[in-house]
Design a binder for these strands. Structure first.
Lengths: 255, 255
DNA sequence: AAGTGGTCTAGACCACTTC
DNA sequence: AAGTGGTCTAGACCACTTC
């Protein structure tokens, strides 16, 4: 029972000054932060089970209920998946999950088919001003640039320009580029995309995009400007997708 | 303590056959459903406080923890607002809330200004096939149709076609049409919009929309096809908005 | 049968608001 | 000081999965 008058603290995770500035910080929050720390450090890999609630509670010196609250919060953030009778697992970035979590384009017939991708170009170099602004990079930072065409049901539908901070992806250039990039980030670089911020606009497609998509220049298209953030809320990827929406739409469900 | 081997049930809310089909239905779920029932019945009005957790627990014959879990679920669904030290309140459909919850258009400078609206036309009549399909209406159902122009920062930006089932909005024709329709639905008709499903496409604006918006026909625009659902998940409003996105964008944040 | 997460209770104490 | 929701604990039992 919490019978002292002091707030229970797991460890001096934050410096004393910082702790004061933060004010009250519940135990389950501290547990969550520590478990996320471990996810970031790769203590458990995607798909692997975490220790059971009882084990974690014993190890951290808190009640099972507090661990449960921390894990429930992490499940709500899509960082872990809980399965009754089986355990709690580190979330995986496989196609199924990505499809529902971050890929919002749906066929007008309701079909959710994951697009097939063809890389059009891959390069590395000094970042320009817009790239630095989007990704929050410093002046001399270098970036990796990928341009690819994505087809849905055999039909070119999306051209994508992807920009990555080179420093976060050492050895990227020599790799095979898979269709599902977020899975690659997780598997080979230990980077988990935890959230995205998308800005949508309607545009007329440019000459160069028109060629790639096989549609007349000037055709209206949906431009999706996406910034993807890591678990630590650090910008990881900037992606601009130009989508033909004559046979598909962007689905947004709000509550 | 739950020492019997039977599942605790609040009341025969669901018929026996239905209960079997549903399988296990936790107590807090039953509490939530009963409280939502009361919201639907207008037992408490938007902005009003609910009884305290302790009072509800005593009244319903469950523990405070179970009531808390039900109220937390309702807060996650944006049906109530919880304020430490003050109480739990029925969510209100005022501009601030709508702005963040359902209105996703943001100025490119980051400003979230709620648009000013001008009604272009208002009519009632027999529903057509598309309207019936969108709203799930029967063959002879009548609808109310509103067309309006919305301006942001003094600039025409959106033309909207709104369709409502006439049966759900008796006396609507004689009313003043406010800028915030969802507030009107809540206040005068006891209908709370609990969720929406939006489908976005890029289109070229039609001649008639071009006139309303003061832009050349063929200009690319964002078409938002929105279905709004009540607390009981019944379709309440079908709204098609055509938006000029040269100075604003649709913001979607995914986790 | 054993182990996991899920539900439910009871009770203590805390943070915050209002009077 | 009194009342509210928020946190935390301990413990019982349930639903579900695996062996």
């Amino acid at each position: 029972m919490a019978s002292s008058t002091e707030q229970k603290v797991l460890e001096p995770a934050a410096g004393p000054a910082e702790a004061e500035a933060l004010g009250f910080r519940p135990l389950y929050r501290q547990v969550r932060d520590r478990l996320i720390r471990r996810l970031v450090d790769g203590v458990w890999s995607p798909g692997e089970p975490l220790p059971s609630e009882i084990q974690l509670a014993a190890e951290l010196g808190v009640s099972q209920g507090t661990v449960r609250k921390a894990l429930d919060a992490m499940a709500a953030e899509n960082l872990v998946v809980r399965r009754q009778g089986r355990g709690t697992f580190v979330a995986r970035h496989d196609e199924e999950r990505i499809m529902f979590q971050f890929f919002k384009l749906v066929g007008d017939d309701g079909a959710r088919s994951f697009p097939v991708s063809t890389v059009l170009s891959l390069s590395q170099g000094r970042s320009n001003a817009r790239e630095r602004q989007a990704l929050g990079l410093s002046k001399d930072a270098r970036v990796i640039r990928i341009r690819r065409l994505r087809s849905i049901a055999g039909r070119p539908a999306i051209v994508e320009d992807i920009t990555l901070p080179e420093a976060m992806f050492p050895g990227f250039a020599g790799m095979e580029i898979p269709n599902n990039l977020y899975g690659l980030y997780a598997m080979h670089f230990g980077i988990t995309i935890a959230s995205t911020r998308e800005q949508l606009k309607a545009v007329a497609i440019s000459e160069v995009d028109a060629v790639a998509l096989g549609a007349p220049a000037g055709t209206p298209a949906l431009k999706i400007d996406r910034l993807a953030l890591s678990l630590e809320r650090q910008p990881v990827e900037w992606r601009v997708s130009v989508c033909l929406t004559d046979q598909l739409h962007y689905l947004s469900e709000l509550r």
